[in-house]
């Protein structure tokens, strides 16, 4: 089998294994139902992720209840570990798919939507695995594996194109800078958005006073917010650089660095929304929920820019037949 064949096979394999990982993480969430409802002070609970046997502070817990709870926590742990193990299995397969794609094309594998999505998702999963292995935080598992499954699924079905050389306008050094920066910042924006989703869900549960199940096992809202902020703070300068590099490249290729092409416009809109997010975090009345909503708006703009503009609107970045 040649590189292209290896790449195609491993890409589909990775998508399927991510699906299994997502199922395992979903089971992890499901198994946590009915547990942890007694977790009063959020934030003190983060250690419970590892302390499976740690009983709640309830002094009069019925022995059978406690036993059931312990069994549930063991199940949560087992499913969670399976999810992580499956992700750890899928990641190198995914990486092989991306690398062999580049070898097959004899260039960096970022020439079309298929290659961009698969590379960017590789970065997303890498961030998640870094959090799991270095910080023992696997609570992003469900959303990350779901994103990876859907993203790779879309890539191999809708965005797929066979290996081919690049069109002349992509023959540029800026191609590498522009697209790596876009893929990395895209990955970070997506991680930030997933964290913001969990922040909103947990924050809502907290305000209703009904933090139970897996939500109780999440870190405190403040820590989720912190992770979301870090992802965005990492992504924002990179995204700025992405736009700047694109503009410099456009000056070389088309003799104008900014032409209000739909892609350029939506990139700017995305940038402005994330600038709003960073300002919102420093503005009274906008912190927390509203900032998180802005982060989600930002990621919607990002995805619309990627899929909507490329496929629906004609412009210089259009991939008419993908």
């Amino acid at each position: 089998m040649d590189f292209a064949g290896v790449s195609n096979t491993t890409m589909v394999t990775a998508a399927v294994v991510y699906l299994f990982a997502a199922i395992a993480h979903a089971a992890e969430w499901a198994a946590a139902r009915g547990t942890g409802a007694e977790a009063a002070p959020a934030g003190s609970r983060q250690e419970a992720l590892v302390g499976a046997g740690a009983p709640g502070p309830e002094p009069v817990a019925d022995a059978r209840d406690r036993e059931r709870e312990e069994r549930a926590l063991l199940r949560v742990e087992r499913y969670g570990r399976s999810g992580v193990a499956l992700t750890l299995l899928a990641f190198p397969v995914h990486a092989i798919a991306v690398v062999t794609r580049g070898l097959a094309a004899d260039r960096f594998p970022w020439g079309n939507m298929y290659e961009f999505v698969s590379t960017s998702l590789l970065f997303v999963v890498a961030v998640h695995l870094f959090l799991v292995l270095r910080a023992g935080q696997r609570w992003l598992g469900l959303l990350v594996t779901m994103l990876a499954t859907i993203g790779l699924g879309l890539a191999v079905t809708v965005f797929y194109v066979d290996v081919a050389p690049l069109v002349p306008s992509l023959h540029s050094t800026w191609f590498i800078f522009h697209i790596v920066a876009a893929a990395l910042s895209g990955a970070a924006f997506n991680v930030g958005a997933l964290a913001s989703v969990l922040y909103l869900v947990k924050d809502r549960a907290e305000r209703r006073g009904a933090v139970g199940g897996y939500l109780a096992k999440l870190p405190s809202t403040r820590q989720i917010d912190l992770l979301a902020y870090r992802a965005h703070a990492f992504a924002f300068p990179l995204w700025t650089f992405t736009i700047a590099a694109g503009a410099i490249w456009a000056q070389y290729a088309w003799g104008r660095f900014w032409g209000w092409d739909p892609k350029e416009t939506m990139s700017l809109v995305t940038w402005v929304i994330y600038a709003g997010y960073l300002h919102a975090r420093a503005t009274a009345g906008w912190r927390g929920t509203r900032a998180a909503v802005l982060a989600l708006l930002g990621v919607v703009a990002f995805w619309f820019n990627f899929i909507g503009i490329n496929l629906l609107v004609s412009g210089l970045h259009s991939y008419a037949g993908i």
Binding site: W260, P262, T265, M266, V269
Partner: peptide
């Protein structure tokens, strides 16, 4: 600004 720029893209 973000909202106002969108029609130009569509």
């Amino acid at each position: 600004l973000a909202v106002a720029a969108i029609p130009g893209a569509l």
